[in-house]
Design a protein around this nucleic acid. Structure first.
Lengths: 212, 212
DNA sequence: GTAACAATGCAACACCTTGTCGCAAAGGCA
DNA sequence: TGCCTTTGCGACAAGGTGTTGCATTGTTAC
């Protein structure tokens, strides 16, 4: 599946039609009311042919996700080792690229993450996000000059998971809001909420600025 | 359905058995693989009887949620009009009560919000949460003495939605981690992340404390 | 306690979805 | 062009859905 480029033209066509069909249908009727027959009909592919390529509709969606995620990793900038950029008001470039990627695959993400979507899809995204965050936050801790009050009972995963939920939540809201904000705008709003919540949850000390 | 107390004893019993059965089954097999036959069998209720009370399994879960939510609203403390408590390190009492409520219905929430759950259930919870938050944050803005830089393009709903996602995300994590933490502990961790993220997203100015 | 009646059990139904065949036709590849 | 893979087609059993009529049970109200 992942080497579609070298596959038979007919196979590539079948995959493409089935993938487009299910994304359409999820958006229209919701993931769990879709039948394999629906997908085949919409894709104008015989139902038996569907089963020659995918186990079921879950498998189809999983394959779409893998392809898309791979594409994202190939197209985003490498992670900066330097952590000094963490607390800027402007989000690091990688986040803008991530939201750009989401915009390019808006139909997929809107379908799979929305009210009609499937929870394990969001779960997989969050898993990826958690790994990214945990890795980077440790780097930050090491070189940070800020005051931190460590809560030994607090598991590392919790703030990372909360961060990941803000991420998927922001995407859902963005894609379902009729008004269109730019990826950069959304990345900025996302980042402000998530990064400060994250660091404060991890014990970094802050003060609100009072009016003078 | 909502006046179960005054209903026929047999009806109350049927409702109870069906509700317990589906919660068990969601946790075991996942919401979308459950059949009405499964539920009826587990509840030791005839399948036809199921259809005399609920349209389908979605309807059943919706009713459970309504009952539970009503129960929560009846049992939690009224909202304080005073907003001064907002930025304490300790979460307001209402949040502890909310997490206590979640703990009491752990089986339901774990089943419906987890990997096997259904996305519109989480969605409904977030809707309730958003309303609560939007209402209270306006009160805070009015009496706050802190410096705020308003971004006119930022919709009110976004930070509220992000807050709500942290809420459901925290619950999921908590319930899937075998509940090793007390409601008060979780409420505190939740609150630190969500409330600061929220206010910073809304433009309140903040500074990290540097090491001296 | 008993009578009235509301709820349940049971069996059967038509219809739909799933996953899998074998065979024939069509289409890409070299 | 000819080989070989892929697709279309029709059919199949198995299982889920939602509904029905009738007999039986259990509850409530008197």
């Amino acid at each position: 599946m992942s080497h579609d480029e070298h596959a038979d033209l007919r196979v590539r066509r079948t995959h493409k039609f089935l993938q487009e069909a299910i994304i359409d249908l999820i958006a229209e009727k919701g993931f769990d009311t879709i039948t394999v027959g629906d997908i085949a009909e919409r894709a104008m592919i015989n139902r038996a042919t569907f089963y020659r390529h995918y186990q079921d509709k879950y498998d189809l969606v999983a394959k779409i996700f893998e392809d898309t995620a791979k594409q994202l990793l190939e197209n985003t900038a490498p992670i900066k080792k330097d952590a000094s950029h963490f607390l800027n008001t402007e989000p690091p470039e990688i986040w803008v690229q991530v939201f750009q990627h989401v915009a390019e695959h808006a139909r997929l993400y809107r379908a799979m993450l929305g009210r009609n979507g499937s929870p394990w899809f969001a779960e997989r995204i969050r898993e990826q996000m958690m790994m990214l965050i945990l890795d980077r936050s440790h780097a930050f801790d090491d070189q940070s000059q800020f005051k931190r009050q460590i809560d030994p009972a607090l598991p590392d995963e919790l703030p990372a998971m909360q961060f990941a939920h803000v991420f998927t939540g922001t995407i859902v809201w963005w894609l379902e809001s009729e008004q269109r904000y730019t990826p950069k705008q959304i990345a900025s709003w996302f980042y402000r909420f998530a990064i400060f919540g994250f660091f404060i949850a991890r014990g970094y000390q802050v003060a609100l600025r009072e009016n003078t």
